[in-house]
Amino acid sequence: MQRVLVSIFLGLLAASGPQVLRAQEGGAEAAVRRAAEQKIAARRPESAGHLEVRVRRVRGAIDSTARLRLELPDRGAMTGGLTRARVRAQAPTGDWEDAGWATLRVTRYDSVLTTRSRIKQGAPVKPEDVERTWMRVSDLHGEPLRASAFRAQRKKGALVADRYLRPERVLRARDVRPPYAVDPGTDTDMYYRRGRVRFRLSCTVRETGFVEDVVRVYCPGTRKTYQARVRTAEAVTWVKTL
């Protein structure tokens, strides 16, 4: 995720060419930070309140009273959440001269859902089980589950935990899912239709699946395993004999 965030940041700075500003109070580090924040606010207003830019290091004789310009190196030099920007200062002659380098880190914050208490795998996840928290998500592995996405999914039906969720855990999009229509061991009726041949077999499901998924089922009456498409929690249709 950090690579994505920094790529967005680089694009914001590079989109309209070098950033020029006069250093104000706080020295060169503050001027570099303001340049990045101004560019984010101008080019990506919706991200301005979510991205925090920190100047980790400044190298070189940077005059904090001079006009400064940031130039970015080749993106291939970027690693993790850090990137380096070349700093140029405007000389009295009007020419731009190398003044040094600044190392920047971009951190993303977002409003995410966290669990109030532990939730077992397969247990329902209801609105009262989660709460919204504003926190750093740059180091989060996977896309965070936002409140809007959670509400949209619940409108389609109930949600359950796809894995054990400990208390105060940041929910990711893949942590919740709709309940499976069938589970291993579920008894189901498999309907076979091919031309004029039609019949029904009592089978047992061998794997989990949602409606419209193709799962394996076993029929004790024929001692054969089939692939079948899930239609409901009680019925599947024949796809293939294994």
Results as ranks from 00 to 15, higher is better:
Gln2Arg: 13
Arg3Ala: 15
Ser7Phe: 05
Ser7Thr: 12
Phe9Gly: 13
Phe9Gln: 05
Leu10Arg: 15
Pro18Thr: 13
Leu21Ser: 13
Leu21Tyr: 04
Glu25His: 09
Gly27Ala: 10
Ala28Tyr: 02
Ala30Asn: 01
Arg33Cys: 06
Arg33Ile: 03
Arg34Ala: 14
Arg34Ser: 02
Glu37Asp: 14
Gln38Cys: 02
Lys39Gly: 09
Ile40His: 03
Ala41Ile: 04
Ala41Lys: 07
Arg44Asp: 11
Ser47His: 12
His50Pro: 00
Arg54Pro: 00
Arg57Asp: 11
Arg57Lys: 13
Ala61Gln: 12
Ile62Ser: 02
Ser64Gly: 09
Ser64Lys: 11
Thr65Leu: 13
Leu70His: 07
Leu70Cys: 05
Leu70Ile: 09
Glu71Ala: 12
Asp74Arg: 11
Arg75Gln: 12
Gly76Ser: 14
Ala77Tyr: 07
Thr79Tyr: 01
Thr79Pro: 01
Thr79Arg: 14
Gly80Met: 06
Gly81Thr: 06
Arg84Ile: 07
Arg84Gly: 01
Ala85Glu: 08
Arg88Val: 10
Gly94Cys: 08
Asp95Phe: 05
Trp96Ser: 06
Asp98Lys: 04
Trp101Ala: 04
Ser111Tyr: 07
Arg118Met: 08
Arg118Lys: 09
Ile119Trp: 07
Ala123Val: 01
Pro124Gln: 08
Val125Gly: 06
Val125Glu: 06
Val125Ala: 04
Lys126Tyr: 02
Pro127Phe: 04
Glu131Met: 08
Thr133Gly: 00
Thr133Arg: 15
Thr133Leu: 15
Trp134Asn: 08
Arg136Glu: 15
Arg136Lys: 14
Asp139Val: 03
Leu140Ile: 11
His141Leu: 13
Glu143Phe: 04
Pro144Ser: 09
Ala147Cys: 06
Ala149Asp: 15
Phe150Leu: 07
Arg151Pro: 00
Lys155Gly: 00
Lys155Gln: 13
Lys156Gln: 15
Gly157Phe: 04
Asp162Met: 10
Asp162Cys: 09
Tyr164Asp: 14
Arg166Trp: 05
Arg166His: 11
Pro167Met: 10
Arg172Val: 13
Ala181Glu: 11
Asp187Met: 07
Thr188Met: 14
Thr188Tyr: 05
Asp189Met: 10
Met190Ser: 06
Tyr191Gly: 00
Tyr192Trp: 08
Arg194Glu: 14
Val197Ala: 13
Arg200His: 10
Val205Glu: 09
Arg206Lys: 14
Glu207Gly: 01
Thr208Val: 05
Gly209Lys: 08
Gly209Met: 09
Glu212Ser: 15
Arg216Pro: 01
Val217Met: 08
Tyr218Gly: 01
Cys219Gln: 06
Lys224Pro: 01
Gln227Leu: 15
Gln227Val: 03
Gln227Cys: 07
Ala228Trp: 08
Arg229Ile: 07
Arg229Asn: 02
Ala233Pro: 00
Ala235Glu: 14
Ala235Ser: 11
Trp238Asp: 02
Leu242Asp: 10
